[in-house]
Amino acid sequence: MKVGIVGVGAMGGTHAEAWTHTPAQIVGFVAEKFEHAQAMAEKYGAQAYPDLAAMLPHIDVVDICTPTHLHHEMTLQAAAAGVDVICEKPLARTVEQGRAMIDACRAAGVKLLVAHVVRFFPEYVRAKQAVDAGQVGQVAVIRLQRDVFRPRKAEDNWFLDFERSGGMILDLMIHDFDYARWVAGDVTRVFCKHLGDPSVSPGDHALAILTHANGAISHIEGSWAYPPPTFRTQFEIAGSGGLLVHNSDASAPIAAYWHKGDDDTAGEVPVPASPLLESPYVTQIKAFYHHLTTGAPLPVTAEDALAALEIALAAIQSAESGMAVTIRG
């Protein structure tokens, strides 16, 4: 299986490393700046291509790790070339784009796999398994929280460009919108409050309340308002029979206290890191590989990614209108 990666930012680099844990071969890179693609190509013994069109004839699978607004067009291009698609989350910048991507891939008979990596994080997977095993009974109240620092790319920080990224709500909170829906099913109503003005807040911050079709309610916090190097997550799943609680601060296996200044060693983009023998990013890419080669089941479909996108965009709409937004199933 020949894989080409588009986009060599934090996720492109992470995915490239993850692919080396599979039998697949990384054959090409495409980047906004050609020299960046060259550097990656050199590192992985692959070819740098000037653009996606030039790479598509040489690959079986494209792994799209570009800014969100580019997912749609690149997916359509790949589908037209009969190449399977792996796409970073969020699926797309708009629901219409997301639908068009799903339709195009289905029509072309290619796969569309969306990298909702939280579905591969062991704490989230175990909690989902516990819920499915009936450990909390019927889910009633979910609390999900993801607090990080504002992405600070040295050049062209597209994360902060709402038109391209959809901002924190679409880029970060979508993880937890997807997870809430994974655990408690479809969402019918969204209400959200959002701090987005950089002259007021040190970073985007939002709180949202979701209402699920089955009556469960979810509280989601997403934040870019914490200082670097923060990456903390929390969840609670309370149901008729019990309660699951996770807090990444409390479960951190290592605490180190150094006699030195406050060196800021955080990267450009916050990436979670609790020591594991296999990174969830690797687990995810392996799952994609097995799915593509053997049809092994995946925990997340493109339709799931589209549903998460709909929730995130409804949250943005609610924050703008001040009203709760209804989602039709």
Binding site: Q138, V139, A140, V141, R189, F191, K193, L207, I209, T211, G215, A216, I217, S218, H219, E221, A238, G239, S240
Partner: peptide, 30 residues
């Protein structure tokens, strides 16, 4: 938003509740 999923068979009042308040100066709090 409220529900009565926890202890549904024991009580008739809501047992789950999430609120989002907005203050006059714009601060919001859940």
């Amino acid at each position: 938003q409220t529900n009565r999923i926890m202890h549904r068979d024991e009580v008739e009042v809501e047992t789950g509740g999430l609120l989002l308040l907005t203050f006059a100066n714009g601060t919001f709090a859940s």
